[in-house]
């Protein structure tokens, strides 16, 4: 799948990524832990949301960095192994220990960043989202095998997008916010399906991979169809100044999907 290249932003993805990597740099963590990658899709949609607000660039950057620090903290904690049985070696033990600490470290960095720029309200908004995300993770974890597939997908969709949705709500942006969750879900699910079909039993720490491993094509296609319909409904309401972004969002989706799933061209 093509990596999203941001065309419409005054803030550039790579420069934000560099700033985040600079903030989280710690040689011991980097030596022993697989640092979660900064998801281009999430950055893309978050930057698009913030670019559709009148906020100054410096503020936008702080919001993006803080949100992505929280995302990385949550992601790295998801990588902590469930049991300690496999940690026979010192390296595995250190990796587990430092994964726990790295997540706590990244969380503290988000708090520090927003404290320094006196964005107290956003600290609370992101904290409330973390709380909700962990509630959802618990629901997912303890119902993993006996929950209906569509409900499971809704939970995962929420996990993927909640931080971004909350930031959008905080800034008052509504247009891109309304398709963010669906757009991310389609991108992630289509990519996971592609990996599954290509690699058969793919071993991955990605939550989407885990949950579609044994699901039939029909169930996945139905979910995608519903999400695509919702995206279409919102995209046709995009005002003129978002036309370029709308086209970009469609293109990136169509690249992820099979021909019979592709998102409708305008006027069809």
């Amino acid at each position: 799948m093509r990596v999203v290249v941001l065309q419409t932003s005054s803030i550039e993805i790579n420069s934000v990524k560099a700033l985040i990597h600079e903030k989280i740099h710690n040689s011991l963590i980097e030596k022993h832990v697989q640092i979660p990658y900064l998801n281009d899709d999430k950055l893309y949609i978050l930057i698009s949301i913030l670019n559709n607000t009148p906020l100054p660039d410096a503020k936008k950057k702080n919001y993006i960095i803080a949100t992505m620090l929280v995302q990385m903290a949550l992601d790295i904690h998801d990588g902590v192994p469930e049991t300690n049985e496999c940690q026979q070696h010192d390296d595995e033990e250190k990796s587990k220990q430092l994964s726990v600490l790295a997540g706590d470290y990244y969380s503290s960095l988000y708090y520090l960043l927003l404290s320094e720029v006196e964005e107290i309200e956003l600290i609370g908004v992101l904290a409330a989202a973390i709380k909700e995300i962990n509630e959802t993770k618990m629901q997912l974890y303890y119902k993993m095998n006996n929950e209906m597939f569509p409900l499971t997908m809704q939970h995962i969709k929420k996990l993927e997008s909640l931080l971004i949705i909350r930031v959008a709500d905080f800034t008052g942006e509504t247009l891109i916010r309304d398709i963010a969750a669906e757009w991310l879900a389609v991108r992630k699910l289509a990519a996971a399906r592609c990996r599954r079909d290509r690699d058969n039993n793919v071993m991955s720490s990605d939550i989407w991979d885990d949950h579609i491993a044994n699901k039939d094509h029909q169930a996945i296609a139905s979910f995608l169809k519903r999400e695509i319909k919702a995206i279409n409904n919102h995209l046709i309401q995009f005002p003129a100044h978002l036309a370029g972004l709308g086209a970009e969002l469609k293109d990136t989706l169509n690249e992820s999907l099979s021909d019979n799933e592709s998102i409708a061209e305008e006027g069809k």
Binding site: V80, N84, Y111, S115, I120, I123, G124, A127, I130, K131
Partner: peptide, 25 residues
């Protein structure tokens, strides 16, 4: 471990949510 990680993150989130009641930077 998984539940312990979620619990710790949940409690920390509540701590930060709570402290924002203090508006003093």
């Amino acid at each position: 471990n998984r539940t312990a990680m979620y619990t710790g993150d949940f409690i920390l989130a509540r701590a930060l949510e709570n402290i924002t009641k203090l508006e003093n930077p």
